[in-house]
């Protein structure tokens, strides 16, 4: 059964993946979560698994998450992963760098945690394959995007009045003499410190425990892609469209270009989050942001909701949630009946 005594080591976990890839399996049981899906699709790509079930206990491989941590069960035998993401145990190859680094990052976002030591170890191993790992601002793709857009796309940490708000983002930067077109690398240390101070001051309004460590963190880049921005894009499209994009991204990682392009295009105009009301089954949020999970992420940080209920979005077309929020046979946005 489960081994709670020791943290697994890298070699043991790698062997585990080899076990999965070596044999022909029928299916893998997983949760409808980005990291479970990325792991499962990697087994489609390299192994002989050809189905993912979200409910069948028949499957020979099962991805399990409970209060003790994560486990992979193979034919009834449980292997302990600690808090490490499922994706982090996959053999490292140049073809799978993007799925692995975004899978690890998406796991930390959904679970509201930092990278584990094991995951940092993996990211360090990837440096020799071209990954750039640095301590820097936790805002999406500051290497490629103008700062105002990076700040606008910051879902984690959520920056009050700035996340989703183009005008406010530009205005805040102008107050500290940062131009609309400036990237992070264009600004000097004085401006950077002013920016960090502004962000932290803004954060403290909603979270008195917010610290510098939550905005300056380990950041993983590969080519022109940032694992944080990719993670947000994967959550967004899994919510709004369903599994297909995530699958194609794992199978052919250059699909990331399409996803990032569409993600930026859809969010570039900004978005609002207005009233939050609680019903028996949902937190109903008035918003033009289409992703219930990204809204949930924002509202959890601002202390407006708890994790115990799914989020539904209210807009002109009705009230919608997604399969990431509720068990559903449909993917993409699911219209719900609501008598508010």
């Amino acid at each position: 059964m489960e081994n709670f005594l020791k943290e697994p080591n890298k070699e043991e976990l790698r062997e585990l993946t080899s076990k999965i890839l070596a044999k022909e399996w029928t299916c893998i049981k997983a949760s409808f979560k980005p990291e479970d899906l990325i792991f499962s699709f990697l087994t489609f790509k390299y192994g002989k698994v050809n189905a993912i079930s979200f409910s069948s206990d028949d499957c020979e491989i099962q991805l399990i998450k409970n209060n003790s941590g994560k486990f992979i069960s193979i034919e009834g035998k449980h292997y302990y992963l600690g808090l490490n993401s499922f994706v982090s145990i996959f053999p490292l190859s140049i073809d799978d760098i993007l799925p692995i680094i975004s899978g690890i990052t998406v796991s930390t976002i959904i679970e509201r945690r930092n990278y584990s030591d094991f995951e940092i170890d993996i990211l360090n191993d990837l440096i020799k394959l071209g990954v750039i790992l640095e301590e820097n601002l936790k805002i999406p793709n500051y290497k490629s995007l103008p700062l105002f857009f990076s700040l606008m796309l910051s879902f984690d940490p959520y920056i009050p009045d700035i996340t989703g708000n183009r005008e406010n983002s530009i205005k805040m930067l102008k107050e500290i003499n940062i131009q609309e077109t400036d990237k992070l690398e264009d600004i000097d240390e004085t401006k950077l410190n002013s920016l960090i101070y502004k962000i932290i001051s803004s954060e403290l309004k909603i979270n008195p425990k917010f610290s510098r460590e939550q905005i300056i963190t380990k950041r993983a880049y590969y080519l022109e892609y940032d694992s944080l921005e990719l993670a947000f894009a994967l959550i967004y499209f899994l919510d709004v469209k369903g599994n297909g994009d995530l699958f194609q991204f794992v199978i052919s990682p250059n699909y990331a270009e399409t996803l990032i392009y569409k993600f930026r295009e859809e969010l570039s105009k900004g978005f609002y989050i207005k009233d939050v009301s609680e019903t028996a089954n949902y937190y109903v949020v008035e918003s033009n942001l289409k992703s219930p999970t990204l809204i949930q992420l924002i509202l959890l940080q601002s202390g407006k909701i708890k994790r115990n209920k799914p989020v539904a979005i209210k807009n002109e077309e009705g009230i919608f949630t997604s399969r990431l929020q509720i068990p559903s046979l449909k993917e993409g946005l699911v219209k719900i009946e609501y008598n508010g």
Binding site: T26, A51, I52, S55, S56, D58, C59, E60
Partner: peptide
């Protein structure tokens, strides 16, 4: 997507599951 419950190689798949 799987639309209806069916078995494949003695494993039962349910509506909403994914198959390649």
């Amino acid at each position: 997507y799987v639309n209806v419950k069916f078995s494949m190689k003695n494993k039962t798949l349910h509506p909403g599951d994914l198959i390649l």
